[in-house]
Every structure is written in structure tokens, then in C-alpha cells.
Design a binder for these strands. Structure first.
Lengths: 286, 286
DNA sequence: CGTAGAATTGATATATATCAAGCCTAGTGG
DNA sequence: CCACTAGGCTTGATATATATCAATTCTACG
């Protein structure tokens, strides 16, 4: 499980992660104030400090296997993880994304999760055993409340359904994903009331996409090729620029937001056609 | 709100419903034993009897408006209701179906539901105010536990997402819907351990589809035309027969189940092609 | 009957799956 | 340091499911 992470080789977000050692006290934690432990009082915090442990994973590693009963609650400190499931026909569905400060697992106790957690990038995770969580008697309600809220993202798929994202075009869903990632990389996120999407709100214009194209495709529920082509179109239409494969720049936040709503209209030069339609499925029949 | 329901004119399930008057005691209730109140002890049951009231709705009526805070928990006694939401672009999404014995609303208290409940057919609903529910001190935990379970269907959309239904072909989703409806009309449902889909388990071969074509389309997330055409194909392929618009007969449960899984293969005469693909979207741009 | 809304059918457009190369990049071994 | 390689990614060509538009049929109801 131990591995040597050389900070220079790791992508974007992880360079910071590598700086976080096992010895960093909680009060200097990268995600302190954002994660569920942000409301722990000083007594509980020192308790936590004794029982939490960091674990590191490489991109592609499985952090929690589907159906496994885990004896801890996890919090991402650095990197991005995928909440994934497998179709009967073998394809992967990605129900949600976990960004730093996001948690997973149930504070109540070990409950078999229906989906797996996998590392999309190299990941540093903070793990706290259930039994030790019980010891935090005083602020437990407050803390577990936050924890439950943090772990909600584990069920993000449900939100995507109820938001009707599944009936939007792939273009719209990709735009939505990009905005989601951008929001997660907003340095002010979680501090102000609502991290908005305007640059004035600290919305970053250059973002690191912590997903492989394959992961993007599985998140959007489309083929890899379709995902790639939609990137092309967003670039061709001038909404974003690709500086590296996973490094992109948001050129036109407003139009990107419209795209994410499926509400684009022909611009002044508009010869790109309206995305007129639909979604997808998957073969992968064994 | 009061309306005269003449039993002869109402479709299938409702003929029974009309026989249920306001005066029928709980112990003779159609859904007694299936609904959340099935575990109430005799004391609580007589309490319930004093506070519950039936309400009747016509097909198309809105039972609960989206975003409304309701002061009761509802249980369907007869008919079928839709858990629906509206897209920003104006189209209707149906997140779930409520069949007799299914409940909605939160026992905790009035919480604004994000979606509306509408009557797909004529509906008889049993309503119990929150405050009266509180009075059921003794078996409250048991009852509210069941209630929460019953109300889960309100969030069915989430399950559909996590089951990966959204990436299946329309044919598969329609087959799934038909099986769901059939299961709901299984007279043994909720009595045996797992109501299976085999005729030997009381699985009905003739079912009443309690949804208009438009509702089917909105449930599947496709256009009305597409929904109609998929009905055609299921009939042409001999999986089901349409006796009336909403009255169908399941001819080949096994293949229907395969279809619902998107696992069909060419049969011996097979010239129907495999459903090779995808989902949909929606225009409806105002 | 005649009308209105629902449902179907037909024709066409198009987004995306799928198959098949080709390319780019990081890692590997000489 | 450089070819080699493998996997991820992109591009191209084609097939097809479904949206969309338009017209017709069905059904319920006056």
C-alpha cells in the first residue's frame, strides 16, 4: 500500500498532496474547514488526530470494492475519485465524483455500498475507523451531520437524474462536467456562501481535468469517441481551449453555462447547429 | 374536491377503488397489510381510523404541487400516481410511479418535495396529518420505518439511475416498465417473500397499463412517437399483445425480461435487429 | 354525427454508436 | 539518448435509433 510519491511527476492537484505527510497535524490539513471535520471542537480534533490515517492510491487503484463493507469513513485530501458501478453488460457507469474534502462511507456503521470507489488520479485519503468516530461523543451529532452531507456526493447519480441531466445532449453534459470540475477547483469554494461561476467569484479559467477520456465517457454515459468529439466541438466553438489533454482553459464561461443547460442559440456568426438531440446506450455485450 | 365516481366507467384498478368508501374501516382496507400501516397495532389502528381521510382525484389532477410543503403523509389506496418534475425547458420528467399501498411524504414533518405528484388514473388516496401521526407513540418507530420504506418509491428515479436504466435502449426501458406494472398488479405481491416474474408466482399475463402514452414517453424520457413505435415492435416481435390501448397481454415473459435487460439475441426466426443503441433528449424549447 | 384530443403512421434529419485506422505520449530497454 | 512499444486518445466512415415535422386515424364525448 505504501508507495513513493515524487511530487514532480504528479499532475496538478497532487503536487500539493505530496506535500501532505502523515505527520501533518489536522489543523494544517489541506481540506481543514471544508471537510466534515471542520466543525469538530479542539477536543475532538485532537482525538481525530490520533486515529485518522492517510492512505495513498495511484490513479486507477480501487479504493473500495463494490459491495464491500468498510469499517471507516473516508475523506479525500487530494486527488479525485470516482463512484462507479458496473453494468450487467460489463460497462462502467460513473455515478459521481469525489473531490478533496468530499467524504464517503456511512457514519452509522459498516454498510455495504452498492458501488465502488476508484482513484481517478493519484489520491490521498484520510481514513477514520468507525469505532473511533463513536468516541467523539461531544460534537458527534454536529460532525456526523456534516459527514452525512459530505457523503452525499456518493449518491450524486440520483441528483443527476432528478436534474434531468440524462436527457440532455452529450455536449450539455460535458459542459456541465467541466463546470463541475471548475467549481471544485474554485479556491473560494466552501468559504463564501455560494461559490458562483463568475470569474469574480474566484472561478478558475484554467482547470485540470482529473479524469481520463474514458472516465469522462463513462461519466457522461457515452462512447469514448463521442466524448472526444464533443471536446473538439467545444474547442471549435470557442467555449474552451485544450492546452494539454487534461488541461483546459475556459474561454467563454457564459456560453459554457448555456451549453450546460442545453440552451444554446445560434450566435452572431452561428453556423454551428443546435445540438438537436439525445443520449446513448452501450453495447459491450460479453 | 368531492366528485362522483361511477364504478362502471372507471378503468381496471379503479372499479375496486370505487367500492372503497370513506366509511370502510381500516381493517377492511384494500391495501391493508401492504401499506405502511400494516404493522400498526390495534390501538394505533383505531387511532388511525379516526384521523385518516380518503381523497379522490381524477386522472390528470395534481395531487401535490412541486415544491409544496404538505402536512400529511399519503398512501395510495387505488389508482396510479406519477412522481414528476419539470425540466427547465418545459418538458415533464417522470421520476417514479406510485401504485396502491405506496406512500409519499415525509413522516418527519412537512418538507418541501422537489417534485409533484399527479394522478395518472383516477386515484383514491389515504391521507394522515403529521400531527396525528405523532400521537401514535407506541408503534411509531415501526410504523414510520415502514412509511419511509414505502415512500422510497418517491425517489425511484435515483434507483433507475443507479441501475443503469438510463443507458438502455428505449425498447429495454419500455419492457422494464411493463414488467414493473405487471409486478405491481401481481395479486401476491407483498405477501410472499419476493414476488417473482414467473406466472407460477401469480405474475399476471393480462395487465392494465395505468399510463397514457404521453406519460409512458415522459417516464421513458423519449418522444411520444418513439414510445408508440416501441409498443409496435414489442407486439410485432410477439412479446406482448395490445388488446386495448392500455390493456395488454404478456405473451412471452422470458423474452420480455431479456428485453428489459437489453440482452436480447436473435431468435430462430430472428430478423428483428438488435436494439443497437441509445436514449434521447428533448426540445420543448419555449 | 361531429368535434377535439390522443395516438399512430410516415418521411426525414441528425446525434451518436460502432468499426477501423492512425496518432500521441509515457514508459522501457538497449 | 534513442528506437520500441502499449495504452490512451483522436479521427474517419458508416449504420442506426430516435427526434422532429406533418398528416392521418382512433377514441371519447357531446
Amino acid at each position: 500500500m505504501a508507495m513513493s510519491m515524487s511530487a514532480t511527476k504528479l499532475p496538478g492537484g497532487l503536487q500539493r498532496a505530496a506535500a501532505i505527510g502523515r505527520d501533518v497535524p489536522c489543523r494544517f490539513c489541506q481540506v481543514r474547514g471544508k471537510a466534515f471535520c471542520g466543525f469538530a471542537d479542539s477536543g475532538d480534533l485532537s482525538l481525530l488526530e490520533g486515529v485518522r490515517s492517510y492512505r495513498e492510491y495511484r490513479a486507477g487503484d480501487t479504493i473500495v470494492r463494490a459491495g464491500a463493507r468498510i469499517g471507516f469513513v473516508g475523506t479525500l485530501v487530494a486527488g479525485t475519485a470516482l463512484v462507479s458501478a458496473r453494468t450487467q453488460r460489463g460497462s462502467r457507469r460513473i455515478a459521481g465524483l469525489l473531490f478533496p474534502a468530499d467524504g464517503f462511507g456511512h457514519p452509522e456503521g459498516a454498510r455495504a455500498a452498492p458501488h465502488a470507489i476508484e482513484a481517478a488520479t493519484d489520491v490521498v485519503m484520510c481514513s477514520i475507523p468507525h469505532r473511533d468516530l463513536q468516541a467523539m461523543a461531544v460534537s458527534l451529532p454536529r460532525v456526523t451531520g456534516r459527514l452525512l452531507a459530505a457523503a452525499k456526493k456518493e449518491r450524486e447519480g440520483a441528483q443527476r437524474w432528478s436534474a434531468g441531466l440524462d436527457t440532455l445532449s452529450v455536449r450539455a453534459r460535458l459542459a456541465h462536467l467541466i463546470l463541475t470540475v471548475a467549481r471544485s477547483q474554485n479556491p473560494l469554494a466552501g468559504i463564501g456562501a455560494f461559490p458562483d461561476l463568475s470569474p469574480s467569484q474566484g472561478f478558475p479559467d484554467r482547470i485540470y481535468l482529473p479524469l481520463s477520456r474514458g472516465a469522462v465517457a463513462d461519466y457522461l454515459g457515452v462512447s469514448r469517441e463521442a466524448a472526444a468529439r464533443q471536446f473538439d466541438r467545444l474547442v471549435a466553438d470557442g467555449l474552451v481551449a485544450l492546452e494539454q489533454r487534461r488541461q483546459l482553459r475556459i474561454l467563454d464561461p457564459e456560453r459554457l453555462r448555456q451549453a450546460a443547460l442545453g440552451r444554446e442559440f445560434r450566435g452572431d456568426f452561428g453556423d454551428q447547429r443546435l445540438p438537436a438531440a439525445r443520449a446513448h446506450r452501450y453495447a459491450g455485450c460479453a
